[in-house]
Each structure stands twice: as structure tokens, then as C-alpha cells.
Amino acid sequence: METGSAAGAETTGTEPVWTGLPPGLLRMRRLLLVVWLGLTALAVGLLLGLLAGPAWAAFALLPLAVLAWGWVLLGRNWRSWRYAERADDLLISRGVLWHEETVVPYGRMQLVEVTSGPVERHFGLASVQLHTAAAATDATIPGLEPAEAERLRDRLTELGEARSAGL
């Protein structure tokens, strides 16, 4: 069946239809980064400035540099995440420096899980995780909108049942 080619291949045939992650995840991660590193910078600056002298307060620039770097990094990481539902399998591609691309045939799925932690819930996000009989299968799609996560879960379960196979 012509279902497409993997990404990263300098492409022959039809490309799978890739879906990126919604911007909510990036917003959440960046906000968390700013809050934590901002607080760290403030704490370092205040403590060193008061205890060791104003010149030492310059160390507060360190967390700020990390913040700037992390800001860019998070953006790149977020852009690298994408998934594609093909006719018979799910493709997940992620990572910038350490790139990983996973194919999970629908028939091999044992369980589909939708999880949402307290922070994620606050931002209206949920992740979908696929489990196969192999523990090494690491197929998680983080930061989806709950509606999309549920649609994906239902679709995957349905397809998994239709194509189910044993071990």
C-alpha cells in the first residue's frame, strides 16, 4: 500500500500528513522556564548582592543566560515534535540533536493512555501514550488539546481493534 515515506528521507513518493503540536505546550514550557529561572536569578542576585557585595550580583546573569538559551531550545524541540496517522500505523518524529522516529502499527497497540497532570490540566493540555507488548516502544505525544487527545485515543483504539494481532 502506498502510505507514504518517512520524514527525513529525501523523499520519494507521497509524504505522510504530519501534524505538529499545538502552541499551548510551548507556551506552558516557556512559562515554566521563565518562572523558575526568573526566580532563581532574582534569588541569586538578591542574596549575593546583599551578602557579598553588588559586584557579585552579576552572577544573576547566569540563570538569565540559561533562560535565553532554554527559550530557543524549547522552541526548537517543540517544532521537532510531530506525528502522522497513516492507514496502518502511527508515525512519531521528535528531537533536534537526538532525533528519533517511531512507527507503531495499529494492530500492535495494547493500550492507549491519555494523561494530564495538574500543570498540564491548568493549561488545558493532555498527552497520549501508546503501549505495545514491547516496553522499549516509547510512543508518547505530549501537549495535545484534550479534544484532540480524545479523538486520537478513540481513533487509535478503533483502528487497534480492527487490526488487532497477538504477540
Binding site: L97, E100, R108, T137
Partner: peptide, 23 residues
Amino acid sequence: VQSVRVTQGPWGRLWRLADVHVD
């Protein structure tokens, strides 16, 4: 085969090499 993965680290990218994992 339960799932197939292709991974590539920065050094592998430099040499245009990747690993194929079959779970």
C-alpha cells in the same frame, strides 16, 4: 515486530548515519 524506531545523535548526523531499532 512491535514497533520500529530510527534514532540519530549529533555525531551520527555529522556522518549521516542512523540506528534502526526493532522492538
